[in-house]
Design a protein around this nucleic acid. Structure first.
Length: 485
RNA sequence: GGCCCGUUGGUCAAGAGGUUAAGACUCCAGAUUUUCAUUCUGGCAACAUGGGUUCAAUUCCCGUACGGGUCACCA
């Protein structure tokens, strides 16, 4: 741990889902070390016994797998600084907490939860009144003997100030009088985040602490802890928060009311992990000397540097994510694309539909796989439609002209044996030529008759091919009936 | 409320003491396309505010406003 290699960590608490802001923190943490050949550690912060969630650790590991953020040390794969799950490190924290007490930087507090609560309620005192800070040795021994439950608190300096220099935000200074005698060890024997992350980061040789901006104001407390132990301070890299916008246009820390905010939600909605990673990489970071926006993980590793980190919060924009996703979908090889698109199509389409051809039409037309059902809804049902749809000014069509076209075209189609796009296209094109009509006018009539909506994923003959012969003819006949009425 | 952080178009975001203040998404218009989408071209749109410092400030400093964060036996 004394080597000069950059070491970062991702230390999520197992909540059961991977918040997208958390994932971005993991990404930056990963990139910071990997851009310089460093080490990346995964540590599970599960010291809150009341909020344990079954299987939560798997979600974290799975997400890192899917996004390609592989770690060098962590649960499952081990490493020289294990264990990597904090609940398995209780003894370590206890030992260091005792050390702090011995050195006079911490003390036992026997105050009951009730007393603390009343302190809080009885206006004025914002926090703990340091009641147990100066308990005599005898008093302490006595309480211990009586088995009074206690916590261990950090003894903050009463005067002066504590500062540090953040890699992103620069010099930050906080008055010590602002600092609470925060709890280091809880009554249940578990440490608090405020304590164990410091111990672990030191023990695990973390050189750069990458985390959200919400920790910046409590960092001086951690600085004091490092000093109390006589440990070397890591570099701090605080990240601007990820924000969301609610219906009232109010911006705040991205949370569930802003929509899908977990990685798995996004994946379920048809977003590709690569697209998600690419997008969030750019929320708070920008490459130097380049306008590049499309990045693979490897490219991010090449380009990443702390200088590109931004200080101001970024609003998560689903619209832009969609754009990234559509780009990634377009780039997807056909087999990978089909693997995702086909099951969805088979699920919603009647069996006479050529789902493979339909999938091909959709490839450049969807922004997320979850778009598919809506975009092919016209295939599964024949919606009510306005006859005015047949009117199109560019092609100079009207319901009347379309009726004429359809009546002419129907027998031609009935006589068409080979039902594929090219043949159908020739048939319609030749018909148009023979009647001296614009090809577009003919196509418009047929397409509207078949699809019953203005915007469709594909041209007239492409859709006819997808529908197949019977369904197409049936739809055209229906259209003629409607137009005659 | 105290403390901390931030403020370039609607969003992401580059930028520098002197620039026509990039680029991307969105939106609009046009071209191509048998429709749509793709693709291409073009367009709309920004330095929160007041005071300094300076020959010159959107860029540096201070204040104000606004926004966010934080004040747990949660992380």
């Amino acid at each position: 741990m004394s080597d000069n290699i950059i070491t970062t960590r991702f230390a999520p608490s197992p909540t059961g889902f991977m918040h997208i802001g958390n994932l971005r923190t993991a990404l930056y943490s990963y990139l910071l070390s990997k851009s310089q050949g460093g080490k990346f550690i995964l540590r599970i912060e599960d010291t809150d016994q009341e909020r344990l969630v079954e299987g939560a650790e798997d979600v974290i590991i799975k997400t890192l797998e899917m996004t390609g953020l592989d770690y060098d040390e962590g649960p499952g794969i081990g490493g020289e600084h294990g264990p990597y799950i904090q609940s398995e490190r209780k003894d370590i924290y206890k030992k260091y907490a005792e050390e702090l007490i011995d050195k006079g930087f911490a003390y036992r507090c026997f105050c009951s939860a009730e007393r603390l609560k009343s302190l809080h309620d009885d206006a004025g005192i914002g926090g703990y009144d340091r009641h147990c800070r100066e308990l005599s040795r005898e008093e302490t021994e006595q309480k211990l003997a009586q088995g009074v439950p206690y916590v261990i608190r950090q003894k903050m300096p009463l005067e002066g100030s504590t500062s540090f220099t953040d890699e992103v935000y620069g010099y930050v200074e906080v008055e010590n009088s602002e600092l609470q005698d925060q709890i280091l060890m809880k009554a249940d024997g578990f440490p608090t985040y405020n304590f164990c992350h410091v111990v672990d980061d030191h023990l695990m040789g973390v050189t750069h602490v990458v985390r959200g901006n919400e920790y910046i104001i409590s960092t001086p407390k951690y600085v004091l802890l490092y000093r109390a132990f006589g440990w070397e301070l890591p570099k701090y890299v605080h990240l601007p928060l990820l924000m969301g916008r609610d219906e009232e246009e109010k911006v705040s820390k991205l949370s569930k009311r802003h929509g899908a905010v977990s990685f798995q939600d996004l994946v379920e909605q048809g977003y590709l992990p690569e697209a998600i990673v690419n997008y969030i990489a750019l929320l708070g970071w920008c490459p130097k000397d380049s306008n590049q926006e499309m990045f693979t993980l490897d490219e991010l590793k090449q380009s990443f540097s702390m200088e590109g980190l931004s200080k101001s919060p970024a609003v998560f924009d689903y619209e832009k994510l969609r754009w990234f996703n559509s780009e990634y979908i377009k780039k997807l090889p056909d087999d990978e694309y089909n693997e995702k698109a086909l099951p969805i199509l088979r699920d919603v389409c009647p069996e006479y539909i050529d789902t493979e051809k339909l999938a091909a039409l959709l490839h450049s037309r969807i922004s997320a796989f979850s778009d598919i059902p809506d975009s092919v809804a016209f295939v599964t049902s024949r919606a009510d439609m306005e006859l005015s749809l047949y009117a199109n000014k560019k092609n100079k069509t009207t319901p009347e002209s379309c009726l004429e076209t359809l009546e002419d075209v129907l027998p031609l189609l009935e006589n068409t044996v080979s039902w594929d796009n090219d043949t159908l296209f020739v048939v319609l094109k030749e018909y148009a030529a023979s009647k001296e009509k614009k090809a577009g006018a003919v196509m418009w009539a047929v397409r509207i008759a078949a699809a019953r909506q203005a915007v469709t994923p594909g041209g007239a003959t492409e859709l006819m091919e997808v529908f197949g012969r019977e369904e197409t003819l049936s739809r055209i006949r229906q259209a003629i009936d409607e137009l005659r009425a």
